[in-house]
Simulated assay, not measured.
Amino acid sequence: MHLNPYLFFNGQCESAFKFYEKCLGGKITAMMTYGESPMAEQTPPEWRNKILHAHLMLGDQELMGADAPPEMFEAAQGFYVSLHFTNPSEAEHIFNALEENGTIRMALQETFWASRFAMLVDQFGTPWMINCDPREGE
């Protein structure tokens, strides 16, 4: 079994995935618009440039996403995408990148379980948790 998050956006998927590619150091391996799909003719013209499917590789991890049609979009709630690090500098770097124009829910700080922990919602509405325990890398 393989588990990976699939994020839905309100028309911002392309911008979000380009941002994640830059922030997280990944590689976008696929990005198909509704207009490039077999269902292009059934898609309203104003929606044809929106993303039907995006795929980002982060090492051997995957992040996928799409623009949800307006009548199907719901803002993210009830979950966080959790990123785990063993290097505090890397955790700080990713936190600082993702927080750009976002909302910090819990500032990056030391906790009883981690050398660094934070919670934020990025500028695209995706909730993230940053967790760093250097002992995990030992």
Score class of each variant (00 low, 15 high):
P69E: 12
P69I: 01
L63C: 05
M1A: 15
P70E: 03
L58V: 13
I28Q: 01
E110K: 10
H93W: 12
N4K: 13
G102S: 04
Q12G: 08
G26E: 10
T43A: 14
M119K: 05
S37Q: 02
E110V: 06
Q109C: 12
F95W: 03
N10P: 05
E90Q: 08
N87P: 06
Q12P: 11
Q77K: 11
L52K: 00
P44M: 00
S82T: 14
L56N: 00
F95M: 03
P69V: 04
M106D: 05
A66N: 04
Q12I: 09
Q109F: 12
P127W: 00
E62K: 03
A76V: 05
T43G: 13
L3C: 11
L24G: 01
F95L: 05
F9V: 06
E14K: 02
E92F: 10
F85I: 03
F124G: 04
G137Y: 07
N49Q: 14
M119H: 01
A54E: 06
P69K: 06
E90W: 09
E136Y: 09
P134E: 04
R48G: 04
E92C: 12
W128H: 03
L58S: 10
F17L: 06
F112W: 02
N10H: 07
T126C: 14
M32N: 06
K50E: 05
N4A: 12
H84Y: 11
E90Y: 11
V121H: 05
A66Q: 00
S115T: 13
E36Q: 02
Y80L: 15
G65E: 00
D133M: 14
E100Y: 09
M31S: 04
T126G: 08
